[in-house]
Computed example of a mutant assay.
Amino acid sequence: MLGLLINDIEEKEIEYLLKRELEELLMDLEDHRIDHMVKRAMKERYQILFQLFRRVASEKECIKYMPKRSENQY
């Protein structure tokens, strides 16, 4: 396990960057032109980024980006 000390400004910056990346991934996952294999990799990346996001964001913010359970949602 690793630890990380960051100040409030750095925490907000990390939260902002993660939000932008999660939003971009969600938008790309809805694109029907993207290959299934690529979407699977994107879903894995989304899961990792969401885990990081949960560490810095409030519960209210996390609910907005919570991954959907159904595979057919993308």
Rank of each mutant, 00 (worst) to 15 (best):
M1E: 04
G3A: 12
L4C: 01
L5P: 03
L5W: 01
I6N: 11
I6S: 11
N7F: 09
D8F: 07
D8Q: 00
D8I: 08
D8Y: 12
I9L: 10
E10K: 10
E10R: 07
E11F: 10
K12G: 00
I14P: 07
I14N: 09
Y16C: 05
L17Y: 07
L17A: 08
L17Q: 04
L18D: 07
L18Y: 00
K19S: 03
K19D: 03
K19V: 01
E21N: 01
L22Q: 02
E23G: 04
E24K: 08
L25C: 10
L26E: 02
E30G: 13
D31Q: 08
D31V: 02
D31L: 03
D31N: 15
H32W: 15
R33L: 15
R33K: 15
I34V: 11
I34E: 07
I34Q: 04
D35G: 01
H36G: 14
H36E: 15
M37Q: 15
K39R: 07
A41M: 13
A41P: 14
M42P: 00
K43C: 04
K43I: 05
E44N: 14
Y46V: 04
Q47N: 14
Q47D: 13
L49Y: 03
F50M: 03
F50Y: 05
L52W: 10
R55Y: 09
R55K: 12
V56A: 06
A57T: 01
S58F: 10
S58N: 07
E59Q: 13
E59A: 04
E59Y: 11
E59L: 03
K60T: 05
E61Q: 03
C62N: 07
C62K: 01
I63K: 03
I63P: 05
I63W: 04
K64H: 01
Y65A: 04
M66A: 14
M66F: 14
P67C: 01
R69E: 04
R69N: 13
R69G: 11
R69S: 15
S70G: 10
S70P: 01
N72A: 14
Q73E: 14
Q73F: 14
